[in-house]
Nucleic acid binder design. Structure first.
Length: 834
RNA sequence: GCCGGGGUGGCGAAACGGUAAACGCAGGAGACUUAAAAUCUUCCGGGCUUCGGCCCUUGCGGGUUCGAGUCCCGCCCCCGGCACCA
């Protein structure tokens, strides 16, 4: 063979194998195969949003890591289904389309085309026959179907809720577009407007979403994030009776004394309920604070305070998110003029409103215990309200002054017959005591909010509902799906704050499916997270036209075996997917309720110690690198530069290491001789097999590659030529990282089938890997004083003798008495001596 | 503030409680080259050294242990996320 024929030219090799994989259908499953696969393994990665910039190195990192996993499983004999798709509906695409002035229907296909080209080029084992594009009617038809299922189950509800409004752009913003309370585009403070929107009642599933976390194998960081997001907290709901002003008598000596006639109590509202995690401190509740939006404010407010209250409420309602969300700002608030009774002390306490109390958590009302809550303390200090101690630590008593809020542990004081009771016990006891009068009960609260899926935008699947004056909200019949998103040239949201579709009369004017009278389509589209909340169900069933997902195929392939993705989706996407899966299970469409058996979050890539960003101009552009080094080298380097689950620092020159490794591997393999392997080399090879086989499924990619490099160094040591049996296992083990190179060498070894077609992973042989001698460390008083080489499994007596014979060891033991010997077989000996 | 994840050579990083720095980058020296590239060999944490070795070193301070980068307690710093959740 001459040099030209033998040399490793990555681009040629990669081109050759990508073409051949396509021709042979190596990566694609037929419907028949999907129905009959014997060792199904569903290997999923988070599908990308196809931006105009093309594939980001972060995408490539994630996909390569997932692909390595899939290819490894395939080499182990699994039928690995590894689909890919495009998450192209939604705000990102729409905003970009607005920016460049191209219609998303024109823009997206070219982005998808470019992504497809790049994804093919990196050599992922993608099944292109089962790709999914969320913007296609044959996909979003089923997204709309999912909505209908939730609607039928009573889990979709329309209610008023605030939307983010940018007064400068005059447009509705998605939460993602609000950064620190400011519009991401123009930095204008975002306001809130209330409009009717669709919600999915995910909060009904809070406890289940929490409990199930115990049953799935996910990255710890991700389960913790989910747990946090659900935010379970245990406490009590307590009732504070309202007091008609007349009863106050002379208690209140304010100059603006309250007009009894001004207090209006309705029968349903004799009390205000609060949620607290510290019912034990109720004796210290010296005032109450309501969220400005709280409905009770209306009838609590007296004529004297009305003007001030209204002004405050108005300000809070229009208030931009920045100032309301700032935790370090000074507390503001207004006294309503009304009072309620502390159910424990019987005292009348004033009711205030303040924006630090949020309407959408708990009951929208709190009992303020300034002595033992920081925020209440601050508020009380600001407005001169009473601060009372009701909990004391050991070194304190009932009269110890409070310099600051004391939220910690202790025993009750100033709390009637509960005095002296420890906090934990009191939480129960006080609640029970109030419960006897129907004024309290233990209660669990969650931070999780219902999922608002309405978007007053254009680029998304229309919500399949028709509003009829006589029938109300009527679901579009399933047979009428999909509700096609019409092509609208002017898709910019405008200052009306309603969806662009609301301007397309010929589209929204329809007959009511129920009464056939004139009706109007819902003109909001759904959240992009709804598209991505079920896509993994569609992949294996893209051949099925009449159903969202084929029951038989779904049963065989789902739940997903391994899902790999970024932690930026640790809460929303993963939570919504879990929720939808639970609902579909309850409705009898699925047999499992957790979609992803195993989830692993990958880390982030930075470059030369700095975060990559367009503004810094330090973004890695993959195409030129792949052109210069080839996809195999790029993949291997990405996997080598740090632990996959932690990410790493991309150093431009670092790629030279893996490049040299793959070239040497190629060179060694093509020059290998047909002869018996050398025992020492074979030992190293089998030790490497053991290590790599164990580490790859754990995503220990960087150390696996290091081990293979080390192994190759041993094989080539002193310029020796390899025996084929020495190098072939290494070629297979490198295949998940450098699939094209491995295929090429596999073929040159004389195999006719693809390396990925069979169970070709090398078998570990413990006997061949076994060492016959080991180097042991010898310590004296825990300090290394020498090493000895002894046969494996040398007993303590012989090892000690050998150690003592070591010159340097002997010197350190000289004149000392050995008190104790620590012997760790095959590792070390430590003489404890003095 | 709260919740995660981290602090180890010049750099990216390794290390079941057991020889810290494997593997790689950068760098030094050398070989092959007319030369360069590529390739190969070799050195490479710091300080002493009588060349046998000795001492120091995993963000800081304590502790447990025969032995701690690793476990425990208390701090400091960096990165990411959440943010008045009662």
């Amino acid at each position: 063979m001459d040099n030209e024929e033998r040399g490793y030219v990555p681009s040629d090799v990669e081109q050759k194998w990508q073409t051949r994989w396509d021709e042979r259908g190596t990566n694609a499953f037929t419907v028949e195969e999907l129905r009959t696969a014997e060792n199904p393994f569903y290997n999923l990665m988070m599908f990308p949003y196809p931006s105009a910039e093309g594939l980001h190195v972060g995408n490539i990192y994630a996909f390569t890591g997932a692909d390595v996993h899939g290819r490894f499983q395939r080499l182990q004999g699994k039928d690995v289904f590894e689909p890919i798709g495009f998450d192209a509906f939604g705000i990102h695409s729409e905003n970009f389309a607005l920016k460049v002035g191209t219609h998303p229907m024109d823009l997206i296909p070219s982005n998808v085309k470019n992504f497809t080209r790049q994804l093919r080029r990196i050599g992922g084992m993608f099944d292109w026959d089962h790709a999914v594009d969320t913007t296609q009617p044959d996909y979003y038809r089923w997204t709309q179907w999912v909505f209908l299922k939730l609607f039928e189950a009573g889990l979709a509800e329309r209610k008023e809720a605030p939307v983010n409004w940018c007064p400068s752009c005059m447009t509705v913003l998605a939460n993602e577009q609000v950064v620190g309370g400011l519009c991401e585009r123009c930095d204008t403070p975002v306001e809130q407007r209330r409009i009717a929107q669709w919600f999915f009642k995910i909060t009904q599933f809070s406890q289940r979403l929490l409990d199930n976390l115990e049953t799935i194998d996910w990255s710890d960081t991700t389960t913790k994030a989910q747990r946090n997001w659900i935010g379970r907290s245990e406490g009590a709901e307590l009732a504070f009776p309202l007091i008609p002003i007349a009863e106050l008598g002379e208690r209140d000596s304010r100059p603006d004394a309250i007009d009894p006639e001004a207090v209006h109590l309705t029968d349903e509202a004799h009390t205000i309920r609060v949620f607290t995690t510290r019912p034990d401190t109720v004796f210290g509740a010296t005032f109450m604070v309501l969220a400005p939006e709280h409905p009770a404010v209306d009838f609590l407010t007296t004529d004297a305070s009305r003007a001030e209250v209204d002004a405050y409420r108005q300000k809070a309602a229009g208030s931009d998110l920045v100032s309301r969300q700032k935790t370090d700002k000074e507390k503001t608030g207004v006294f309503t003029g009304g009072y309620c009774r502390n159910p424990a002390t019987g005292e009348a306490i004033p009711v205030w409103i303040a924006d630090y109390v949020l309407m959408d958590y708990g009951t929208g009302a709190i009992m303020a215990v300034p002595g033992h809550d920081e925020r209440d303390f601050e508020f009380a200090t600001e407005f001169g309200l009473e601060i009372r101690r009701v909990v004391a630590r050991k070194d304190e008593d009932a009269d110890t002054p409070l310099e600051e809020a004391a939220p910690g542990d202790g025993r009750l004081v100033n709390s009637g017959h509960f005095d002296g009771m420890p906090k934990a016990e009191a939480i129960r006891a006080v609640t029970e005591w109030l419960g006897e009068r129907d004024l309290g009960e233990l209660q669990v609260n969650y931070r999780l909010h219902d999922w608002c899926i309405s978007r007053q935008r254009y680029w998304g699947p229309p919500i399949p509902i028709i509003h009829c004056d006589s029938c109300g909200a009527v679901p579009v019949p399933e047979s009428d799906l999909p509700v096609i998103l019409p092509r609208v040239e002017d898709f910019r949201p405008d200052d009306s704050g309603i969806s662009p579709l609301a301007r397309v009369e010929e589209w929204y004017q329809v007959d009511c499916p129920s009464c056939e009278g004139p009706a109007r389509r819902e003109t909001d589209v759904s959240d992009t997270f709804l598209d991505s909340g079920w896509y993994f169900l569609r992949y294996p069933s893209t051949d099925s036209e009449g159903v969202a997902f084929d029951p038989e195929i779904t049963k065989r392939w789902l739940p997903v075996d391994t899902y790999i993705g970024g932690n930026e989706h640790a809460v929303l996407h993963l939570m919504y997917s879990r929720f939808l899966t639970m609902v579909l299970k309850d409705l009898g469409h699925l047999e499992f309720e957790e979609p992803f058996t195993r989830f692993r979050a990958h880390g982030l890539i930075i470059r030369e110690g700095a975060k990559m960003s367009k503004s810094k101009g330090n973004v890695i552009v993959p195409d030129p690198i792949i052109e210069q080094y080839g996809a195999d080298t790029f993949r291997t380097y990405l996997m080598f530069l740090g632990p996959f689950e932690e990410g790493g620092d991309y150093q431009d020159k670092g790629i030279e290491g893996p490049r040299g490794f793959l070239h040497r591997l190629f060179d060694t393999a093509v020059n290998a001789e047909d002869r018996e392997p050398d025992a020492d080399v074979e030992r190293k090879v089998h030790q490497t097999i053991e290590q790599v086989t164990q580490q790859i499924p754990e995503l220990g990619y960087n150390t696996s590659i290091a081990a293979m490099m080390e192994c190759l160094n041993v094989i080539r040591a002193g310029g020796r030529t390899a025996a084929r049996a020495e190098i072939e296992p290494l070629v297979v083990m490198v295949a998940p990282f450098a699939p094209h190179l491995a295929e090429e060498l596999w073929e040159r070894f004389g195999h006719e089938e693809s390396i990925f077609e069979g169970r070709n992973w090398p078998e570990f042989d413990a006997e061949k890997a076994a060492e016959n001698s080991v180097e042991m460390a010898v310590q004296v008083m825990g300090k290394l004083r020498g090493t000895i080489t002894v046969p494996v499994d040398t007993d303590q007596e012989s090892a000690v003798a050998a150690a003592q014979a070591e010159e340097n060891v002997a010197r350190h033991l000289d004149g000392k008495t050995v008190r104790k010997v620590i012997h760790v077989p095959n590792r070390m000996i430590n003489f404890v001596a003095n």
